[in-house]
């Protein structure tokens, strides 16, 4: 069969037309449906769906918002990789939290204090000279070691 013969046969399809009163009924029905469409208020879900379907900007906005929200959640989650810092959980990134933790403060306070009395020998190899200087500075205290050594603590 040639192309011309096939085109000729297909013209028979093209010649199929609806009856003349078909378009009158069609128009009346379409008008009725258009009015219904105008009167019908879409539900919020339908409106959102239509909006998303036809507005790429809306989709991009929602994608960016979702990505931003995910970043914020990841950043504030204590177990998240972002919160542990770039060198993992054992790095110095989270040390301030460790120092301020209740356990650390409790352990520190409950441990016995190591008191080391200050010696005037540490300040000066010559005790006599030291005493002389302190006496001169305080004006009335003859002993430097008794005043400072009892209250000095070392953590």
């Amino acid at each position: 069969m040639s192309d011309e013969r096939l085109s000729q046969l297909l013209k028979l399809k093209a010649a199929e037309k609806p009856s003349p009163d078909f378009w009158e009924r069609f128009e009346a029905s379409l008008e009725r449906r258009c009015v219904q469409e105008l009167c019908a208020r879409p539900s919020p879900i339908q409106a959102l769906r239509e909006n998303l379907r036809h507005r790429k900007q809306g989709l991009a906005f929602f994608s960016l918002a979702a990505a931003g929200l995910a970043l914020v959640v990841l950043n504030f989650s204590p177990r998240s990789p972002l919160a542990q810092g770039p060198f993992g959980p054992s790095s110095s990134w989270d040390r301030p939290n460790h120092i301020l933790s209740r356990e650390y403060v409790r352990d520190t306070l409950s441990s016995p204090r190591s008191v080391r009395p200050l010696s005037t020998d540490v300040l000066s190899p010559n005790p006599g000279a030291s005493r002389y200087v302190c006496d001169r500075l305080s004006g009335h205290s003859p002993s430097l070691g008794s005043g400072l050594g009892s209250s000095a603590t070392c953590f």
């Binding site: 000729q8 010649a15 199929e16 037309k17």
Partner: peptide
């Protein structure tokens, strides 16, 4: 199928139909 608008078909189409041995043209169509 819908009715055929016979005016929409060219003369060559009807010439070919006439050339066929179909006794009833409408049945053939």
């Amino acid at each position: 199928v819908q009715a055929i608008d016979e005016q929409g078909l060219g003369e060559s189409f009807w010439r070919d139909i006439s050339a066929t041995e179909a006794s009833d043209k409408s049945a053939y169509l």
